[in-house]
């Protein structure tokens, strides 16, 4: 079951852009918004997280990512997670494609295609992303993802689905223009055949701390589907993004 937790909480966190209002997968919550990196923009990201549960030792993770807007509305993501607490190292490659920006009638739309390798286990993924305005300054976000395990054992799903819904809003306006509050709910099919889906709720803050630097701070907790483990399982995430 621990593997289940890892599958949901430790999805590689690559994301984009410098704006604090930009939702950035893993910085700090596991949800994307539909804005691609600007053409020519590069960013580096660092993230550290700790997952805690009363029944096991804390799990520390560190990850780094590089992003490059190599074409209009498209960017490439390269991520790596050297392991700190076990022998598992992971890396991923992603292609983010902005399909349309938000207009008067329709939300912004994007897709993200990914390849992820975790200790020899290969996965491909395709994520659809929608973002739209809600209220005066808020944004809603919807992610739907299909993940294809290329060499899954027989007791695990070869294809599973995940989704996330989130809300973000700048906070502090009109006096402070440097921070965004985020809340997201994730749900994902269990990697193991026959086990229930998992749910996760998180809140986070993205704050600009430098001319081109944004930090992200978040806390996520599983809500259901983690059979056999004492709750809560929490993950704290701290991320830093710098674009150039």
């Amino acid at each position: 079951m621990r593997r289940v937790i890892v599958a949901l909480l430790m999805i590689p966190a690559v994301g984009i852009a410098i704006d604090h209002s930009k939702l950035d997968y893993g910085r700090p919550l596991q949800i994307d918004d539909a804005d691609p990196l600007a053409f020519g923009e590069m960013a580096i990201e660092f993230g550290a997280s700790i997952s805690v549960n009363r029944s096991r030792k804390p799990d520390y993770r560190f990850e780094a990512a590089y992003l490059y807007g190599f074409a209009p509305a498209m960017h490439l993501e390269l991520s790596a997670e050297p392991s700190l607490t076990n022998s598992k190292s992971e890396f991923g490659v992603g292609l983010f494609i902005g399909i349309k920006r938000e207009t008067d009638k329709l939300p912004a739309t994007a897709i993200k295609l990914g390849y992820h390798n975790s200790d020899g286990e290969n996965e491909l993924s395709a994520r659809a992303i929608l973002t739209g305005q809600i209220g005066a300054i808020g944004k809603w976000h919807l992610n739907g993802e299909a993940i294809f395990a290329l060499n899954a054992p027989t007791d695990q799903r070869k294809t599973r689905f995940a989704g996330a819904i989130g809300y973000s809003t700048p906070i502090g306006l009109p006096n402070d223009f440097s921070q965004t509050f985020i809340v997201a709910f994730n749900i994902a099919q269990n990697t193991h055949v026959g086990e229930s889906a998992m749910g996760l709720l998180g809140i986070g803050l993205r704050k600009q701390i430098g001319v081109r630097e944004v930090i992200a701070l978040g806390i996520e907790s599983d809500l259901f589907g983690v059979v056999g483990l004492s709750r809560p399982s929490l993950r704290l995430t701290l991320g830093l993004t710098s674009s150039f």
Binding site: D35, P36, L37, A38, F39, G40, E41, M42, G69, P72, A73, G98, I99, K100, R101, T103, L106, A108, F244
Partner: peptide, 11 residues
């Protein structure tokens, strides 16, 4: 066109 097409500044 509704396609996103933002361009980043000269590095």
């Amino acid at each position: 066109s509704p396609r996103p097409m933002e361009v980043f500044r000269l590095r």
